[in-house]
Design a protein around this nucleic acid. Sequence first.
DNA 1: TCCACTCAGCCTACTAGTAGGTAGGTTTTC
DNA 2: GAAAACCTACCTACTAGTAGGCTGAGTGGA
Lengths: 200, 200
Amino acid sequence: MSTQQKLIDSARYLIQTRGYNGFSYADVAEEVQVRKASIHHHFPTKADLALAVVEESRAGILAQTERLAGNDFDPLQMLQFYVGYWEKCITDATAPFCVAGMLAAELPSLPDNLAEAVRAHFRDLSRWLETILTRGAQVGVFQLRGAASAETEAFIATVYGAMLTARAFGDPAKFTEIARGGVQRLVNQDASKATKTARR
Amino acid sequence: MSTQQKLIDSARYLIQTRGYNGFSYADVAEEVQVRKASIHHHFPTKADLALAVVEESRAGILAQTERLAGNDFDPLQMLQFYVGYWEKCITDATAPFCVAGMLAAELPSLPDNLAEAVRAHFRDLSRWLETILTRGAQVGVFQLRGAASAETEAFIATVYGAMLTARAFGDPAKFTEIARGGVQRLVNQDASKATKTARR
DNA sequence: TCCACTCAGCCTACTAGTAGGTAGGTTTTC
DNA sequence: GAAAACCTACCTACTAGTAGGCTGAGTGGA
């Protein structure tokens, strides 16, 4: 793996655990086993490094969004995949928190360009999830109580709130419990009782 | 107001906006218009200052919890009061985030005693809310889908997730929208349709 | 009433250590 | 041999925290 990638990975982990204001170039240098100056070679400023971390995540979401274009996906399975991804990350502590969630909390103290990237991340995530929820409602797998945008934001709040709660109680299991409840809430109870294969 | 209280208030605001790792004694000194050394006089270490902030919040919750002892309260009104409190704080930006929520995100990087106080805060909050939810279920105002503890944690996640979401999107209205939805979800639909006065 | 004393509160001036960042030279790679 | 990667050595600004002195409001005699 390239040093540049190692630097991004290290920064990601440090942001997840300690936040933007809680880590330094010295920490990254220690982890990746290079000198501080070498990090500045790849990322002139700390904001540049954090930006690279966020943009990498955004690219991941964007790639996922494009895969939804064909409309031939299972909305429920997609949501369960999303929650399951974080379940695994949080449970085995590889990524005990979403990097964008951490940065969102620190938003008012972040450099402008980084703050904007974080907001963009949430817009991207929101768009991706709203597509899934809308599609799910169309095929009858989901039952939305309000506007798709509002339901999407509520779902995002549940997932990120679940991360925070799990951290606050020091218990990863709480994430699973709360997040799965958030998915279940969207599922159309009538449809899931009647048929098990509610596809187009 | 005493200097000590001014220091706590200043620290509270700074933690809410920038987090524990995002502010310094210099910032507090600037705001309260005293010298750094004077802060150390009142609070020997930064952790002591932050601890005072958290303990003040805990005391508030504890006082609220004691008021529930008599069982003569309206559970729905209580929950709406809680959400309304944060609605006001976030909307008028007096307190754009819960101090414990912010610290919970930073938990892994906090000094031990401070981290423990934050966890204790969440235990207290959880106990208070669970009392309200349980009582609400007893009198039929609320309808709990699962265990009271699970519902409580889900509600906490929704509220704190709503704060994070509002900050991420730079829109305080999102907090109101999501949090009120969180309350509504608990309300017993049958009961609220049938009678408007579901008291003991 | 005056003096001696205490003490909280606040100050200036300082410490050791760390922050992010830079200048410029050396090594590695294509 | 040129570019990219990485280094040593350094800088300035800032961090939390300390040492020790000044002030002014009480307190307890005699």
